[in-house]
Simulated scan of single mutants.
Amino acid sequence: MWKWMPLAAGPLPAAASASTSPASPRASSLCLACCALLLATSSVLGGCPGGTVPSPEPTRVQEGANCSWSLDRHARSYNHLEGDVRWRRLYSATKFFLRMDKTGKVDGTRRKNCINSVMEIRSVSVGVVAIKSVNTGLYLAMSKKGKLFGSEEYNHNCKFKERIEENGYNTYASLRWKQKGRQMFVSLNGRGTPRRGHKTRRKHLSAHFLPMLIS
């Protein structure tokens, strides 16, 4: 009598043997050639099929442009840059124009076209200015006691901190001198007479000036 054997058990050793058999030299050479062709193609296309991945260079350019724009805006935010020169008439909130005569006297005048009221305002550092009479050539200065006078020479007494107040007027405080820790300001009272620095405050209208364009 015939004895039947399972068919599934027979082919397994042959399959296992085929999978573990070494590849022929011709097959290995063909595989290496294919790999070399793929590498060459990817290098020509920029490392990706079809070259669809965008280059990172435009992103860096854009970031650089934004950075440059931020720096320019930061620089433009400073209204008083060193070397800036303006010709103005300083009109006080008490309705006087600040003036200096040839003797060095400082006071106020209501005359709109007074030649001694034309001032050259020069920025010597950020937020610090020197104020010079165009006609007399004298510099506005403040003494240790807070008295205003015209100085022939430019020195530390001639430096003032310029600040734009909330009402749109400017204040000018002595950079060098203070009175008991308080700043002393250029100021004209209701009669056009300069007030002593130790009696002035930032909030006083007599210390507020509007730089007016020369017409």
Rank of each mutant, 00 (worst) to 15 (best):
R89L: 05
S117P: 07
S123Q: 10
R76V: 07
G168C: 06
S77Y: 07
K3R: 10
N167C: 07
S70T: 02
F160Y: 04
V134K: 12
A27W: 14
L148D: 14
S77D: 07
K180S: 10
S17M: 13
L32K: 10
S70A: 08
A8R: 06
C31G: 15
G192S: 04
G64K: 04
R110A: 14
G46D: 01
G197I: 05
L81R: 11
P11K: 15
E63I: 10
R89P: 09
G190D: 15
L45H: 14
Q183D: 10
Y169H: 08
D107I: 01
V85S: 14
G108F: 02
W69E: 12
L38A: 09
G64N: 06
L148P: 07
E120R: 08
S17D: 08
S68K: 12
F185R: 00
N113T: 03
G104F: 03
A130E: 01
F97H: 12
T171A: 01
K161E: 11
R202I: 12
T103I: 13
S92E: 00
E57F: 14
L30N: 11
S123M: 08
S21H: 09
G197H: 00
K199I: 03
Y172R: 06
I164C: 13
M119C: 01
S42L: 15
R26W: 05
D72C: 11
R122W: 04
V106S: 07
Y154N: 01
S206K: 00
S55I: 13
P49N: 08
S70P: 01
A40L: 09
Q183A: 13
Y169F: 12
L140A: 06
C48G: 11
W69Q: 11
N116W: 04
L205E: 09
V126P: 00
P22R: 04
M184V: 08
C67T: 09
V134Y: 05
L71M: 14
V128P: 06
R122N: 05
K102Q: 11
N167L: 04
P54E: 00
C114M: 00
M212P: 00
R191N: 09
E165Y: 12
D84G: 03
I214D: 07
K112Q: 13
N66C: 10
M212L: 15
L12T: 07
P11H: 10
C34N: 15
S92I: 02
S55G: 05
S125D: 09
V61E: 12
G146F: 08
G127I: 02
R26F: 09
V186Q: 00
G137T: 04
Y172G: 02
P13R: 12
N170H: 13
C114R: 00
R60M: 11
W177Y: 02
E153C: 09
E82V: 15
C158V: 05
R89M: 04
L81W: 06
P25N: 00
C48T: 04
S117H: 03
L7R: 12
C48Y: 10
P22V: 02
G190W: 15
R201H: 03
N167A: 01
V129M: 04
